[in-house]
Design a protein around this nucleic acid. Sequence first.
DNA 1: CATGAATGAGGTTTCATTCAT
DNA 2: CATGAATGAAACCTCATTCAT
Lengths: 219, 219, 219, 219
Amino acid sequence: MPSPVRARRTQVERREESERALLAAASEVIAERGINGASLTVIGERAGMSRGLPTHHFGSKDALVARVASAAQDRMADVLLDAIERSGHGAADMSGLDLVRASIDAYLEQFEHPSAEDRVLLVTWGATLPSQSSIEGMLDADRRAYEGWAQLITRGQHDGSIRIDVDPAASAVILHGMLRGVASLLLTESEYTDMTSVRATVDAWIAGALSPEVGPERT
Amino acid sequence: MPSPVRARRTQVERREESERALLAAASEVIAERGINGASLTVIGERAGMSRGLPTHHFGSKDALVARVASAAQDRMADVLLDAIERSGHGAADMSGLDLVRASIDAYLEQFEHPSAEDRVLLVTWGATLPSQSSIEGMLDADRRAYEGWAQLITRGQHDGSIRIDVDPAASAVILHGMLRGVASLLLTESEYTDMTSVRATVDAWIAGALSPEVGPERT
Amino acid sequence: MPSPVRARRTQVERREESERALLAAASEVIAERGINGASLTVIGERAGMSRGLPTHHFGSKDALVARVASAAQDRMADVLLDAIERSGHGAADMSGLDLVRASIDAYLEQFEHPSAEDRVLLVTWGATLPSQSSIEGMLDADRRAYEGWAQLITRGQHDGSIRIDVDPAASAVILHGMLRGVASLLLTESEYTDMTSVRATVDAWIAGALSPEVGPERT
Amino acid sequence: MPSPVRARRTQVERREESERALLAAASEVIAERGINGASLTVIGERAGMSRGLPTHHFGSKDALVARVASAAQDRMADVLLDAIERSGHGAADMSGLDLVRASIDAYLEQFEHPSAEDRVLLVTWGATLPSQSSIEGMLDADRRAYEGWAQLITRGQHDGSIRIDVDPAASAVILHGMLRGVASLLLTESEYTDMTSVRATVDAWIAGALSPEVGPERT
DNA sequence: CATGAATGAGGTTTCATTCAT
DNA sequence: CATGAATGAAACCTCATTCAT
């Protein structure tokens, strides 16, 4: 229960609360209608505020979208970290392969019941596919994400949990792409797919492809 | 008045030619700017024709987009069939696994130097990710595509080229998702990735995951 | 009475008529409310047409304003030429000084009962005074106008009607500035000024300053 | 509590200082961008203060603009008075004609290197040209200014320095208009004009037109 | 006295669509 | 069959103003 002495909020609190409400509303609306379909008017109203507030706070629609996108990325990164921490051992103790598998499983698990912010992650990415389209910072985030996979793989090769003859860059592209593609399918076809089976199968593929024990022959 | 042995093109031919030009132009513009960014005016002009022609021929923008999307899907299906036919043996002689591997490799090969129509395939797909967004017939096409993969896998299980304990539905989701995700990454990050290595690695993953010889243990 | 055979207008006629109506309406509204106060909505409605038509025809408000401004300039140039032609002799027969005097008198006469287009001439000019403001082609028109005065003065010096020791450039600046300043005052203070007397006095000043007979001493 | 000998500024002083800063900032911004282009936000920030301060102090934008305009007029009046005082003799000793000539020369000299406040004088005037536009007190100031010229001329006629047959009202209009028109031209075309020559020529015109010695014949 | 968060009217512009030619 | 003129809804954005702090 908040102290009754401060029934009124300070300016800073008002601003922060508004921004939070606007970002949440923007995530919702973008997840529903896409970036173009999400008008600032609707976002403002969804946040329970006025039409002009989104521009007032973020300066432009582009800036708001960029904020929404990066918030979604940050949130997913947190989800993955949390999942790894909750997986029993600290991240420091886990092998590279286990880190990869735990991360990917957590990612897919997240999309079994995706929130607006989860969906926004894929919606904003889908909007970058036209060649001229560009969302502020999107490409960079992409590159960081897949360099993260490459580093995990390299780490796994050092600790012996991942085969030496794996190409970290190529495998990172495939992991990253597979995650997104599968998550997107889950989004649009959720009623047609058995999530648990998909997650198990993805895990098996990755284990088979990366673990050194008995790998597939390279073609 | 008797028709003079088709000295000039018939109405039907002219209409078809206009439609072809409009579809090609629409593919280009959508690939560049996305569906929303592609205005009918620009599409008409890009086709070397008038502003009002797209509406005149297709009735509405939605209808035109649907036509563009399904044309892109049809074309990709043709590419895959061609690739399989060119792969030496007829499709009837190939094992289920080989069909899967050949199809996937052809798909990725196509995206090494993607045309506007290739890109439009992914752009229209990316536009379906918002929950309310719907492009006419897109969901159906999606479902057909991934049921195709499932059938190929089942066929492979019958002819012994694919392990029995593989879940065709789940694997189909993963194959389909991986293809799209990887192709999309190639689109936006083409200069950062070694295509040949990616294709080889994808093939190795699939072979390892599906071939019966020495599969990974299921977790 | 228009021929009943062509009750319907051609596309070209429609466009031209619309443009004329829009330019006239824009002149009116700009004369009344200034450039900023003249919204495209009001201009469209004043022309008896839709809100969006001004943009449709001219592409942007800036382009429309530029058209309005240059139309006003052209019209005033025509008025001056007409006045000179009507002044009895052809322009070729008149001395430089007489041309200057006739032009200036016609200009001021025009502002005794200014039309919207006359007023627009000064309104658009007034809008160029802020240092960053710029209306397409306005500065050029300005320069052409005052170079015209300078040429007339030089011509007068050659034909003996204007004193040799007059500096054409400086006098052109003064003539041009005086015209505008006086016309502007007439616009805002019309009820307080005796136009006829002002015109006569201006003419006397100019005659006295430029005619060679008995000039004022230079200070 | 006794005031500690003004260790800190009084409220009144702070308010006056803020207002001065705001007026200076407003003059700058209006001189640059015009009245419409000058937003209260920018003016507040240019003054090194907050966004809301202009409204807080002046109540409305219109009121602020009126203050800026009248401040600019007052300042120019001071400049002219100073110039006359510095011209050697007191104003009381000078003839009407000399007062006119000195005032006008000082005005034009001021516009050789115009400050923001000088420019704002013409910018606000230019904004009064649309027929419906009205800046509080602008018309009155205008009338006062040109009645001032008329009085000077009448005084000159009494002291014999100005010809009797000059119409004071008409001449006042011309003087006032010429000043503004020429000053405005200097503003936009400063690099194309030889200021010194313009000032000398203006002075010669006026001397010739008003001085009784050998006037031009009236037409 | 001063700040700046919030509002909402109004501006320009884009664009799918209708319809006359 | 084809053109493009015209409409008007809706988008983003700017900004004066109000009001809580």
